[in-house]
Design a protein around this nucleic acid. Sequence first.
RNA 1: GCGCCCAUAGCUCAGCUGGAUAGAGCAACGGUUUUCUAAACCGUCGGUCUCAGGUUCGAAUCCUGAUGGGCGUACCA
Length: 588
Amino acid sequence: MDFIIAETLKAVNALYQTQLAENDINLQQTRKEFEGQATIVTFPFTRFSKKSPEVTGNELGEYLQQHVSQIASFNVVKGFLNISLKDEHWIDLFKQNVSQADYGSIPSKGRKVMVEYSSPNTNKPLHLGHVRNNLLGFSVSEILAAAGYEVIKSNLVNDRGIHICKSMLAWQKFGNGETPESAGLKGDHLVGKYYVIFDKEYKKQIDELKEKGLAEEQAKKEAPLIREAQQMLQQWEAGDEQVRSLWSKMNSWVYAGFESTYKKLGVSFDKFYYESNTYLLGKDIIQEGLDKGVFFKKDDGSVWIDLTADGLDEKLVLRADGTSVYITQDLGTAQLKYNDFRMDDSIYVVGNEQDYHFKVLFLILDKLGKSWAKGLYHLSYGMVDLPSGKMKSREGTVVDADDLINEMIETARQRTEELGKTEGFNTDEKDALYRMIGMGALKYFLLKVEPKKRLLFDPNESIDFQGHTGPFIQYTHARIKSVLNKASFNVDNASFPDELTATERDLIIELGNFGKLIEAAAADHSPAIIANYVYDIAKLYNRFYHEETILKADDERVKNFRLLLSFSTANVIKKGMNMLGIEVPERM
RNA sequence: GCGCCCAUAGCUCAGCUGGAUAGAGCAACGGUUUUCUAAACCGUCGGUCUCAGGUUCGAAUCCUGAUGGGCGUACCA
């Protein structure tokens, strides 16, 4: 439809001797209650046409109809010029473009982008919040790849620190040598169990100390368990063999557990970074910043940056004792990633509680004169909350990722069996189908919402399988495949009609927007755009499916055309869903 | 205190760079299957787009302020 803009520019120039730019033309899809497919808003033109919006619209319409062969007719409603294009034009768009097997592929942009996501702590299993992160990161990676970027998916594993020592210490004290095998627990769940035990015992000690008259703050600092954990961290940093060996053992349990969860989620990574390797990085950057006068040193030896001119605060970048803080490592890690890959852009998928941190991080790198700093982007997403409030691992008020996944698959199994749709499936096929549908429901549920919005999840209300959901779209795909199979569809038999029904036209137009939507989703880092688009396509197709008959169409040309239209729709649905990390079944 | 984010139907969400009478799903009610998969389709009901100003031919969308909610503002990560 874009050619209309160019033609309108010519028309405005011819009629009103005014040279406009492309951006000055407001072209949109005609609302369905009016006739036409393309609408130009004519209000802005009245400034130089010196005529009413209606008259201006009519003059433009006349001109365009005379000069543009694809235009069939036009009508003017107030300041809106509605243009109907000939069916020939839409059929041509379908033939040349939409129906092609590679439709929706965008040529390489020659840009490399890193997407860092997941980045778990190795002291507890993944919960629903992590699931949102993982699905977002994976989906954004797929969308960027579809939009022609070279994508590197990375995962910065937080495998060291005081929280890890807490689990280790609790296991050492209360574990009696328990292993994932002996406990019959996934490794990450076993380690998480001891993280919770630590917290429970720690609280006990705090209460005891408080009874002895200590203030809360002091009790928290002096409880023997926390002291031991801190000591263990020091031993870890000193390379103490026993501590390191316990650490390796427990982390390996966790990794085995994560691997299984990642697999079920269908996410993957090209590059792992581990904080145990990167936590000392960044000190050379501190020196660089001091040399450049970006940072300054206080009397106690701590290093700071003054960001008050940018509306932020003074920020510590190195402790007085010379050790790193969080941002020190992140400065170093950012440099490391750039040295490794020389990417043009780098996206961090991290929750919105760290908005301030990333603002500061990117600003500092920019002030240090890093040329690549402008390519850094924080994909900030809202927390997943329960009706009872925030999820807290230590207090056990979390929706566990593995549990949720299993429940979704189980629900999918029940629904499918109730509907009696498993005829002709063997056991493996059934399992694959249930997994596909259950995960489709979960993933779609999480991805259809704009990332930055917070998400409320009520464990008592199961995730829907009907309506605006993943399974609805999957069902539409399976339905199409079923028709195509019945017809023994072959692309080579394609034929095209002389005219279109309204629904066929709507479907072609919407399918024609695919590329534009991929670009928009990539630019906004928003899977929600793809999710809502694919839903619109599925909905339109179902309307078409009910209104028109395909296999029994009177005219063989129409039949073959509708088959090809169905095929093309399935193609877009599949590609779109794959960008969300959702698979679509051949039948269900 | 200061900073950032959010607010659209009873509930969950769309609404493209400002454009026509603000759209879906769920829930409720009614209809559609001798015909390609009813996880579907069609219809009814449901709105002061949190509030108050402003900019504009035109505001859910932009600006200012207020209210409500979330987050941050650590020599934690």
